[in-house]
């Protein structure tokens, strides 16, 4: 079957990718966009290594057809931050030991970005419930929960201490529809020395 050209909006950039109807989003990202940060671990929706955000919500890249998300806003691990300014979750996964072999890390980070978007102060049980679709074979999850908890704290501290003009003009309670908020904490916070 012939390939069709589709436009994927990934990390706020436009990619024209030639794909077949049966190509998954994970495949299109890795081979079409050259974004290999999204991993394929089981290819059957169990391990969550391929988790990306589609309009701010986590999605399994291995069980999502690329054509299905044409025109949607896709975020991958590469889009969270540049080298100078890591997203607090990325920093926390490294600093708290939440990443060992690292293969599951992009998926865990993306799942956690979505969690912290809707729950600024999750309990450890809430974190566990949120990450229960991602599989880690190295850490026993303890330091992953640490990392998410720590990042949430960091984000809260930064939100408190450095209100941006944008934030100050926001209504106190954001309603559904603020999905664009996903993942911007990293850009909002100042770079820290030595990461």
């Amino acid at each position: 079957m012939s390939k069709t050209l589709v436009t994927l909006n990934v990390n706020d950039a436009t990619y024209e990718v030639a794909i077949k109807p049966q190509d998954t989003l994970a495949l299109a990202l890795r081979d079409g966009c050259g974004l290999t940060g999204t991993k394929i671990g089981c290819d059957m929706g169990t391990c969550g290594c391929c988790t990306v955000l589609v309009d701010g919500e986590p999605a399994l890249g291995c069980l999502t057809l690329a054509l299905e998300v044409e025109g949607r806003r896709i975020q991958t691990i590469e889009g969270l931050a540049g080298a100078e300014r890591l997203h607090p979750l990325q920093r926390a996964f490294a600093e708290c030991g939440g990443s060992q072999c690292g293969f599951c890390t992009p998926g865990f980070v993306m799942t956690s970005v979505a969690l912290l978007r809707t729950n600024k102060a999750p309990s450890r049980d809430e974190i566990k419930a949120a990450i229960a679709g991602n599989l880690c074979r190295c850490t026993g999850y303890a330091k992953i929960v640490d990392a998410v908890e720590h990042a949430a704290e960091q984000i809260r501290d930064e939100d408190d201490s450095v209100p941006t003009p944008n934030e100050m003009s926001e209504k106190p309670e954001t309603q559904a529809g603020d999905k664009d908020d996903a993942g911007i904490h990293g850009r909002r916070q100042p770079a820290t020395a030595g990461r």
Partner: peptide, 21 residues
């Protein structure tokens, strides 16, 4: 100490077997 190679892992820059191009 954070693992010295963890930075490239948390950013998606680490090149695993299937990431070689």
């Amino acid at each position: 100490q954070p693992l010295v190679d963890s930075w490239k892992k948390v950013t998606g820059q680490a090149v695993y077997g299937d990431d070689v191009r």
